[in-house]
Amino acid sequence: MKTLAKIKFIVLAVLLFLAAPLFSQAEGLIADQSFKADNEILVTFTGPVDKAVAEDIGNYTVYEEPDPDIRLVVSSATLNEEGKRLSLIFTEPLNTATTHVISIKGLAGIEKTTFTVSKSYLGYLFGILISALLINNFVFTKYLGLCVFFGTSKKKDTAKGMGVVFTLVMVVSALMSWFFYNFILIPYDLNFLQIVVFIGLVSLTVQAVDTVLRKVNPILFNSFGVYLVLVIANCVIIAVPLILANNNYNIFETFMLALGAGGGFLLALYLMSSVSERMQLANIPPSFKGLPISFIVAGQFAMAFLGFSGLQLF
């Protein structure tokens, strides 16, 4: 599928773009810095540093970024043999969710060396993706888009195509919504118009996809039938802009959320379609035929997805 390759390319490009600052940060005296145990920060220098300066805890000023006036107490600083790895132990466990700012006085003759330690932003972005994809799967744990989910999960091919189109529409409309939200709705205090604006943007995207698809892949277009229209009136798609507005996501976070939500929808559709094909042969009690049994199976999937709850990758 061409669209799939395109999406892959876009993801790769974005990931590279995001990774760029990580590489540039490595310049200067500090090679690497990370949280280690509960109350430890590990710093790696590009070259050996003066042991006396580095091990004097009076030379350190450490605070959490939002609270610059509250100094964290360093209980010990140990440099390894080589003089390149420094381990800072704190008296209290650190709150690893926030960025920590560390300044060292007099290191390598520089009056003050300041750097920040935080969990990797890339990891955080990836966390949003995984969360929308698995942990808070839009179908199985947030119950969005059920109409289309039950409608199009009868056949694997339809399910795959539908999922890809959904992801595409979702990413495009979410990015546009983000733009509108941040540059029009917020500055002009028009937040109450968000529902109208978002649904308008979604319809616009769907129209565009419709036109493009009709030209590019008429077979796929035909197999969707009425469902492309249903995309407009679908909670999954409109939910993404609403969530990003609620959480004040930036553009990368928005992209990851939309991608994860779309991917999660695709995953759910695919899983469901793969079992529906088997279900059509089964001797299901007459009153359960059709939707009721689909609901029961979806419930079983939702139970399996409970296994992801509480997953914290980074």
Partner: peptide, 11 residues
């Protein structure tokens, strides 16, 4: 059994 009985369950 709702799914058709023995041999038809997915989980």
């Amino acid at each position: 059994h709702l799914l058709g009985g023995i041999g038809y369950n997915f989980f």
